[in-house]
Design a protein around this nucleic acid. Structure first.
Lengths: 144, 144
DNA sequence: AGCTAATCATATCGAAATGATATGATTTAA
DNA sequence: TTAAATCATATCATTTCGATATGATTAGCT
């Protein structure tokens, strides 16, 4: 029942962009430094994020990334799903017909409830909420 | 965010024992047949369950397993935790001091909420509840 | 024009976890 | 004594995870 580093790193990456959402383009290198995550690994992650249209990029010198929309527009769920796929504890919830026991299965109700509970959390927290609690914790842009 | 087959199989195994909770000892072979799960794989799983004291076993011919306590005594959470460990989406929730960013981390609150939400589901469903919905679905002991 | 800093695109890799299977010892009712 | 069962380990193939490596492409700056 673990969330992969890709999902967690993607969230921190997006949060970093949200906190430093000044209009300038931020290179991956800066984010890697602040977040203490491998630059190359972050590159892979932001490529996926970029293809989904969550960020804008500018290539070449002085280039980098910025959020395509305001922090309010991104829920934690959107970001996690992008990296992890559906937030289901079992595959059969997302692949109808994948299990021929489905009609008489009583455990599927549990998995459904777990999925709903998880989604209820992550779909109701936005990057803006996280930026807010980031500052409430006494953090500043230069100390993340 | 997946639950492993060990966790899911363990739940089905315990549910099978709960449904067939007649006082007789049930051999793994029967459960493997009914659940269409590898007998040898189930053996590994029930060994863990047995060591935790969740079931009683009798060796030798005519032997098998039965629940050590009534179905009401087992929550889904107890069974899943036995096979999966803590139901946390991240390790840092269970290993204090494992992350030196913990004090200024804003994402840990999300993981905490997810863990709580999941636990709220699995700790409030017992095997007895599952047996009940099993029969409500029109199933019988010979068709699981 | 050329240098440098950046994104973009794949390929590769080691380690760990997953989901089993294999082998065989031990126990016990019939 | 035999057959059926639990108990105990070892092994194995595949996938996933988390990352590194290599190099091409783009574009601002001097």
């Amino acid at each position: 029942m673990k969330i992969s580093t890709k999902g967690r790193y993607a969230l921190r990456l997006m949060l970093d962009l949200a906190i430093n959402n000044t209009g300038e383009y931020i290179p991956i290198k800066r984010i890697a430094e602040r977040q203490e995550i491998s630059e190359k690994y972050l590159e892979q992650i932001i490529t996926q994020i970029s293809r989904a249209g969550f960020v804008r990029s500018v290539r070449g010198s002085q280039g980098g990334y910025q959020l395509a929309n305001p922090p309010e527009a991104y829920t934690v769920g959107m970001i996690l799903r992008l990296m992890e796929g559906e937030l289901s504890p079992v595959a059969c919830l997302d692949e109808p017909g994948s299990c021929d026991r489905a009609d008489r299965c009583v455990t599927v109700d549990i998995w459904r409830q777990i999925k709903d509970a998880v989604e209820n959390v992550v779909d109701n927290i936005t990057l803006a909420d996280l930026v807010k609690s980031y500052h409430e914790k006494g953090n500043c842009e230069y100390f993340i």
